[in-house]
Design a protein around this nucleic acid. Structure first.
Lengths: 155, 155
DNA sequence: CGGGTTATTATGGGATACCATGGGAATTCA
DNA sequence: TGAATTCCCATGGTATCCCATAATAACCCG
């Protein structure tokens, strides 16, 4: 109904496990994907995660490339080679792999951020920085075409 | 019948709950959204809240941007990552989250302000200030072109 | 017109269910 | 066989559900 929305920060235990926020688990269950699909975000120090909806979105992008070009294989390597399928245990937890650790800088806490059709996995402090910047950027992007905005746009 | 109008101030109980004004609940029920959609207002110290109408308005703006651009994810983070979906209990109450507290300065009272297709959540004193300012600005805006007279808005 | 009665609403509080987290035991892999 | 993983259960804290009460507004009926 609502996709992945809002953000949550959970602790990583001694075994490297972390609880996936319950609201996100509910979305995943409805999506029907077994486990979780994870891929490095090309734009920032986060990992994109999701279920079938994310997978099909990625496959769609890939298939839009000409299959004959060498770039097709390269793209496949970039997309699927950089992916993982972590399991989700009975208590709704996943294990943070080395690949995720390296790409995000996660040590003892994890922030999950909903992006509707997918969610992102962040190191909390890095997310705070990115989020502040994203707010500014969003304001700039939206103010260009806002239908009925208020008057002045303060910083 | 006509969306969210008027404003109400309710008290926050020891558990951080507050009753959503009955007229607003009626609008939400008619809208059919499960729970409530909340997002920080970028322009002021308030939180925008609403149901499907607000959500679809936000989603529409988001989908107008090309999914390939790096800004797409940033926008999603700003729009959905910074949002929340508080539940509404059987008595028509919601819980004020830390995010709402921080952004609005709410401590023990909450003012709900109807804005037709959505409503805002304010700290009462901050709203009074903003409201006074808004009156002046509205007057200035209208005085240049308003054909219809009077229609004075009381405090 | 007025007295009484009911319905709705805001608020308080207790009980319960859910969730994040920790740790032990069993299992798998190298 | 040792290390890491997976499964299962325990627990504390929080949020949710449910019921009680008071105040207000709407209503009814004499």
């Amino acid at each position: 109904m609502a996709g992945f929305v809002s953000h949550f920060t959970n602790r990583l235990d001694a075994k490297g496990r972390v609880s996936i926020p319950a609201p996100f688990r509910a979305v995943l269950a409805r999506d029907g994907f077994e486990g979780l699909y994870c891929i490095k975000s090309p734009h920032c120090a986060a990992v994109d995660a999701g279920g079938n909806e994310l997978v099909s979105q990625i496959e769609k992008r890939w298939s839009e490339f000409d299959m004959m070009t060498p770039g097709h294989d390269a793209l496949a390597v970039a997309l699927f080679g950089a992916s993982e399928n972590p399991k989700i245990d009975g208590d709704g937890r996943m294990t943070i792999s080395d690949m995720i650790r390296e790409h995000t800088g996660i040590t003892d806490q994890v922030t999950f951020v909903g992006l509707k059709y997918k969610f992102q996995i962040w190191e909390p402090e890095k997310f705070r920085e990115y989020s502040a910047e994203a707010q500014k950027r969003a304001l700039a992007m939206l103010s260009g075409q806002a239908p009925a905005p208020s008057r002045g746009e303060p910083a």
